[in-house]
Design a protein around this nucleic acid. Structure first.
Lengths: 340, 340
DNA sequence: TCGTACCAATGAAACGATTCAAAACTTCGG
DNA sequence: CCGAAGTTTTGAATCGTTTCATTGGTACGA
C-alpha cells in the first residue's frame, strides 16, 4: 500500500488497455458488459481513485468554481454560499470557498490560488473597490461574476439586491400601517448599503405630505450601537418619540428593541413600530418578533452560478447585471396598533 | 489570448530552456541574475500563471488540506475554520472547505472529491458515527484528524473540547457565587455534548451537600425552546424558582432570559443567575450580558492542522487525542447578588 | 468464401510542470 | 594555452489521465 493505484495498475490487474479503463469511467456504454465488470472489480480491489490533477491537466481546465466572500460568518453570505454550492453541484462542478474577511491581501491570495487551480470561473464579493486584480482576471479571460455588488456591464456580470427598493419597502410598510413620524437608524452613510436603504426610505416618506423622517446616526451596525440609540430615544420622552423606526440592519433593531422594552415605558408595536433589515435567525425569536426585509440569498447564489455558466459557455463576453428586489417580512413589531 | 501561457511559452519568449524557467520559479539562487531578469520579464509579458494541476501531478500530492464541517453558519465552526486556514497558510497549504450540513450524503461527496484532489490530509467533524468511509480513508493512508469529536487513538488523531469540564465549570461558578438550587436546561441528552455538560454539572453539585440540581428538558437548542422553559418557570412562582440556571447553550439561555426579564417579576442576577455555553457574539450584547463557557476554537483549529502535519510527515501513524478545557467568561448575568 | 458493417479494445501522444544527469561555459593557477 | 573545478544551462523523462486513429473480432448477406 505504498502508492495509490493508477489507471495503469487497474489496466494490468484487469488485463485490459488503459484506454479501456478510461472508457469504463467516462463512457461506460462504449465498453462491453464483461469487460466493464472485470475493470470495476479491479478498481474495487485496488481501491483506485481518479487523480483529478491528471484529469484536469489533460482537460485544460478544472471542474471547480472559486467563490470569495467577505465573511463566511455573516448569515447573508453563508446562505449565498450554500445556494451556490447546490447550484454548482447540479451542473457537476464543485465550489472552492475563500473567506477574505474584508482583507484585500487575503482576497489577492485567493485570487492567485484560484488562478493556479485553473478554476472555471470566479464568483467574488470584492473588498472595497473593484481592484485592478479583477481587471487582470478579465484580460486573462477568467469569467468572473460580482456578487452583492453592481458592476459596469461592459466589464463584468453581477448579481445584487436593490437596497433602495428595500429601504422603500420598509418605510412604505411603516407608513401603510399609519405611522407618520419615522426615524432611520443607520451607521455611517459612507457604507453604500446604508446610504441606499436611507435613500429608499426618503423616497417613500416624500410620498406622504404629512410624514417626516429623522435620521439617527449610529456608531456601527451592532446590537450595542442600536442600544445607545435606543437609550437616547428613551430619554427624550414620549412626545418626541418617533412612532416608526427603520433600522439599517437587524442587529441595530434588536438593540433598539432591548432599550425600549427594558424600561417598560414604551410598547412595541403600540407606541413605536420597529423594522429591521436582513431577516437574520434572531429576528423571529426576539422578545417581540421583529419585522424585517429579507434578501433573496438563495436566488442570489443560484443566479450567480447561472451567469457564470453563461460566460463560461459563450465565447463572446456578454455581461449582465441582475438586480433582485428584497421582500417584506411582517411580524409583531410592526403590527397595526388597532389589531394589537 | 487564446490559451494561457505555459512554461514552454515563457522559455521560448525568453530564449532559455524550460528547466531554467522552472528553476527561476523554484530555486532562484541557481539562476544567474541576467537570466532571471529575462525570464521574469517574459513571465510578466505573457501573463504566465503556474498550472497547479501539472505541478501536483508531478509532485504526486497537492498542497491543500480538506476540511469538512457540520455547518459553516455555526459560529463555533466558523471560528475553527478561520484558525485552520491561518495555520495552514503559515505552512504553505491552502484549505478546501466543505459544508456537510449534517448530511451524510454531502459528507460522502466531499470525502470523495477531496480524495480525487489528492489532499494532503483531511480534517473532519463527522456526521453521526464515524463512518466506514473514514475507515477506508485510513486504509488508503489519507491522514485524517477528527475535529470536535473524541477518537479511538488507535485509529485517528482528534481534537476536542472537554464538555464535562465545561459543565463542571459552569455549575461550580454558580455554586461559588452562593447559589444552591440549580437547574440545568438542555435538549435531548442523546446529544453527546448535552449529556457531557450535564454530567459535569452533576459532578460539581455533588461536591456541595446542600445543593440540588434539577434537570429541565428542552425541546431543542433554540431561543424559542429556551423561552418555553422560561415561561414554565415564571408560572411556578418565586418560591419554587431555582436560583441558578445553567443552559446547554447560549441560545437557550437567551430564551430563558427573555421570559424572565419580560415579566419583570424576576431580576437577573439578583433573583436568578443565568449562564450559557459557547459564548456567541450575542451573549455580550444581551439585555443582561450573559455569562458563558467559551470554547477555545482558535486553538482547536490550529492544533488540528498541527496534528495533521505530524501525520503527514511521519511514516508510522502515531495518533493523538488532544482535549482542551473550556474557559469561564463571567458577565453580569451571574454577578454575585451582594455586588449587584 | 469474401466483403461490408459494426462494435470493442488498443496504445501512442498530449497536457504542463519538475527533476536531474549531462553539456556548456567561466575562472583561475600553472 | 591547458586542465581542473566550479557555476549555469539544457532538455529528455516522468507523473496519470483522456483522446482518437488504428487494429482486431464478429455477424451477416451475397
Amino acid at each position: 500500500m505504498n502508492r495509490t493505484a493508477s489507471i495503469k495498475d487497474v489496466a494490468n490487474h484487469a488485463s485490459v488497455a488503459v484506454g479501456t479503463v478510461s472508457n469504463v469511467l467516462n463512457y461506460p456504454d462504449r465498453v462491453s458488459q464483461r469487460t466493464k465488470e472485470r475493470v470495476l472489480r479491479a478498481i474495487d480491489e485496488l481501491g483506485f481513485v481518479r487523480n483529478d490533477a491528471a484529469r484536469q491537466l489533460r482537460a485544460g481546465h478544472s471542474r471547480t468554481i472559486g467563490l470569495i466572500v467577505l465573511d463566511v460568518g455573516n448569515p447573508f453570505f453563508t446562505s449565498v454560499v450554500r445556494a451556490a454550492e447546490d447550484a454548482a453541484a447540479l451542473q457537476g462542478s464543485a465550489v472552492l470557498l475563500g473567506d477574505s474577511g474584508h482583507d484585500a491581501g487575503r482576497e489577492a491570495n485567493y485570487i492567485d490560488l484560484f488562478q493556479e487551480q485553473r478554476v472555471q470561473g470566479l464568483l467574488i464579493s470584492p473588498v472595497g473597490d473593484v481592484t485592478e486584480r479583477l481587471d487582470l482576471l478579465r484580460e486573462r479571460g477568467v469569467p468572473t461574476v460580482l456578487v452583492d455588488r453592481l458592476a459596469d456591464e461592459s466589464k463584468f456580470s453581477s448579481v445584487a439586491v436593490d437596497d433602495d427598493a428595500g429601504g422603500y419597502l420598509a418605510a412604505r410598510h411603516l407608513l401603510d400601517t399609519g405611522r407618520r413620524r419615522l426615524a432611520f437608524v443607520g451607521g455611517p452613510t459612507s457604507i453604500r448599503q446604508v446610504a441606499d436603504r436611507l435613500q429608499g426610505a426618503e423616497r417613500a416618506v416624500k410620498e406622504e405630505p404629512d410624514a417626516t423622517l429623522e435620521v439617527l446616526d449610529s456608531a456601527g451596525q451592532t446590537v450595542l450601537a442600536g442600544r445607545s440609540v435606543g437609550d437616547m430615544l428613551v430619554e427624550r420622552g414620549r412626545a418626541e418619540l418617533p412612532d416608526g423606526i427603520f433600522c439599517a440592519n437587524d442587529l441595530l433593531a434588536l438593540g433598539v428593541m432591548q432599550s425600549l422594552t427594558m424600561t417598560h415605558t414604551f410598547r412595541i408595536p403600540e407606541d413605536v413600530a420597529l423594522i429591521g433589515y436582513d431577516d437574520i435567525d434572531f429576528a423571529v425569536s426576539a422578545v417581540v418578533p421583529l419585522s424585517s426585509i429579507r434578501q433573496p440569498t438563495e436566488l442570489l447564489g443560484r443566479t450567480a452560478i447561472e451567469l457564470l455558466s453563461e460566460e463560461v459557455e459563450s465565447r463572446n463576453p456578454v455581461h449582465r447585471a441582475v438586480v433582485f428586489t428584497p421582500e417584506l417580512v411582517v411580524r409583531q413589531s410592526t403590527a397595526t396598533p388597532g389589531e394589537g
